[in-house]
């Protein structure tokens, strides 16, 4: 039954794009604090599933989600719940870094401003600094906060996006293949950041890199063709998977 420590409890979650069923009824409990990785071959539904947690699928025409997803025991697909409020609690980092074409400062300040989180310029300044520090970007950009966020390198942009998400004080951060556009050094920095962030946030990361999942995550879920095949502690998945298909995938026999 429902794990009482779980941040998210999903029961029989199905996602349809029009007539196509992308997910065939997923049951999973995702713990608070720590990193949960979703792995699986392209088109297996892991990104689709990730986007159900902040209801980003709502923005796609013809996409329907059924089943139950409870966050702290509350149904996030409840009709009375405004997805806007949900997304303030569940931040997201996308595959391609997408900083707003505005100054670094305004990138971070956008979220606090629309939610009215700060009441003075000084408070906002402090929040921007705190967010950038948490994302490990402050020292690199503190002298050029007025410059455009799009002028940063790919790795810096991705950390800027994370800082932007942190600024609205979310409880959860979803990451959709955050390192796929980054070089190894930027990836290492990002992974170190994830390691730090998991002390404060529940992090769910979709990744194509098995090594990355092994390095950063505490629990790993393997998806295949719209099904959750196996979900367990990362160490167990990578050393002693109980399902043959998982075994085949992590050893590179299927992909």
């Amino acid at each position: 039954m429902t794990d009482t420590n779980a941040k998210f409890s999903c029961r029989n979650v199905k996602v349809h794009y029009g007539d196509f069923e992308a997910l065939h009824g997923i049951d999973i409990d995702i713990p608070d604090r720590g990193v949960t990785a979703f792995i699986g071959p392209s088109g297996c539904g892991k990104s689709t599933f990730l986007r159900t947690f902040n209801r980003m699928n709502d923005t796609i025409d013809g996409c329907r989600v059924s089943g139950k997803i409870l966050m702290d025991g509350n149904d996030i697909y409840n009709k009375n719940l405004d997805p806007v409020l949900l997304r303030a609690r569940v931040g997201m980092v996308f595959q391609k870094p997408n900083p707003f074409p505005k100054s670094i400062y305004d990138n971070i300040a956008f979220g606090p401003r629309i939610h009215g989180l700060t009441s003075s310029k000084a408070e906002l300044d402090a929040l921007v600094e705190k967010s950038l520090r948490r994302a490990g970007l402050w020292d690199e950009v503190k002298d050029r906060l007025k410059l455009s966020g799009t002028g940063l390198s790919g790795g810096q942009q991705q950390r800027l996006v994370i800082a932007r998400a942190i600024a609205v004080s979310p409880e959860v951060i979803l990451m959709d293949e955050p390192a796929s556009a980054l070089d190894p050094i930027a990836t290492a920095k990002l992974e170190a950041l994830i390691e730090e962030l998991k002390e404060r946030y529940c992090i769910i990361i979709v990744t194509h890199s098995m090594a990355q999942a092994a390095r950063v995550s505490d629990k790993t879920a393997f998806f295949y063709m719209g099904d959750l095949v196996e979900y367990d502690a990362t160490e167990k998945i990578f050393t002693n998977p109980s399902n043959n298909r998982t075994q085949d995938y992590i050893t590179g026999r299927t992909g």
């Binding site: 303030a88 997201m92 996308f94 391609k96 997408n98 074409p101 629309i114 996006v161 932007r164 609205v168």
Partner: peptide, 11 residues
């Protein structure tokens, strides 16, 4: 992706 970014922040 810009709109996605804004939406994901709760805009």
């Amino acid at each position: 992706s810009i709109v996605d970014g804004a939406l994901s922040l709760g805009a």
